[in-house]
């Protein structure tokens, strides 16, 4: 019911109108928020905080290594983990959609296990259990290979479910049209269905990239050399040598440097996809 019709009704309520009420309630919400902010700001010890977290000279000393080494490694770990996860996730998604029962079960078991385990445990498993179980074998690429594998194993479980949903979201008529033109089931999947599915799942996949970006910090549980440190490890190491937490703050800002633009891209893509549906 709109305001206009409400006013025409003879039984007008006494007191505040609906607009006035709405304004009042919003005013109260703002006031509470501002008050909480003031209490927080007043009670924090800013001098000590600044001392501990915002030392300009320490921050300065971090450059350019924090970018050229730490951020670079973080990106490298993330991208390689994402690549492994995407490839593996695709295979698992297709197994999950397969008409062959055992494939479906295997894929289901994989997804349930790796979705349910903390990424940290998987890193430890790759770092400790694999060398124990297969002595003498080296995972290709050293630390980079191990990280790609660990991150990939975690990501694959989530991505498989996303990819499966994307494939199922492609209208059935697309497969029928492809089959009627003589495409084999595999060819139809590769040429017609998967390209359309990826358009649908690009936003959730990018979200997964953001999650992986943060999870790459778990590398420190594998034990890395100085050259292999990524943002979190680098920040922590420097924080302990300088006995100051500024490096943590700088490392944190470096994460945001990547994740915020990525988040922006995701929202743009979602808006675009929304438009395409209309």
């Amino acid at each position: 019911m709109s305001d206009a019709t409400k006013q025409d009704v003879p039984l007008r309520r006494k007191g505040l109108s609906r607009t006035q009420k709405r304004r009042l309630s919003r005013g109260i919400q703002y006031a509470v928020f501002v008050a909480a902010l003031i209490v927080f700001a007043a009670s924090a010890d800013w001098d000590r905080l600044q001392n501990q977290f915002a030392q300009a000279d320490i921050a300065e000393q971090m450059f350019p290594d924090v970018i050229t080494l730490a951020l670079k490694n973080t990106v490298l770990y993330t991208v390689s983990g994402f690549a492994v996860g995407l490839a593996l996730g695709m295979v698992i998604a297709l197994m999950r959609l397969s008409s062959v029962g055992p494939y479906r079960w295997l894929a289901g078991i994989y997804i349930e296990i790796f979705r349910g385990l903390p990424a940290l445990l998987i890193f430890i498993f790759i770092g400790v259990a694999v060398p124990l179980a297969f002595p003498g074998t080296e995972i290709i690429g050293g630390t980079y290979g191990k990280v790609a594998l660990a991150l990939g194993l975690v990501a694959a479980a989530y991505m498989a479910e996303t990819i499966r949903a994307g494939i199922q979201a492609v209208p059935k008529g697309q497969l029928e049209a492809a089959r009627s033109l003589g495409f084999s089931p595999a060819r139809a999947m590769i040429s017609i269905i998967i390209p359309q599915a990826f358009r649908i799942i690009l936003p959730p996949l990018t979200n997964e990239l953001v999650l992986l970006f943060k999870d790459s910090s778990l590398v420190l549980f594998l034990g890395v050399t100085l050259e292999e440190r990524e943002l979190s490890k680098y920040g922590r190491d420097l924080a302990s040598t300088t006995a100051n937490s500024t490096p943590i703050l700088v490392a944190g800002l470096c994460y945001l440097l990547v994740t915020i633009p990525l988040g922006f891209v995701v929202r743009r893509m979602e808006a675009k996809a929304q438009e395409a549906v209309k």
Binding site: Q174, E176, A177, R179, S180, L181, G182, S184
Partner: peptide, 18 residues
Amino acid sequence: DAARRRIGMVFQQFNLFP
């Protein structure tokens, strides 16, 4: 698949590849 190549089919919902 080979047999279907020689039979064209047109659907109610067009089913073009978008």
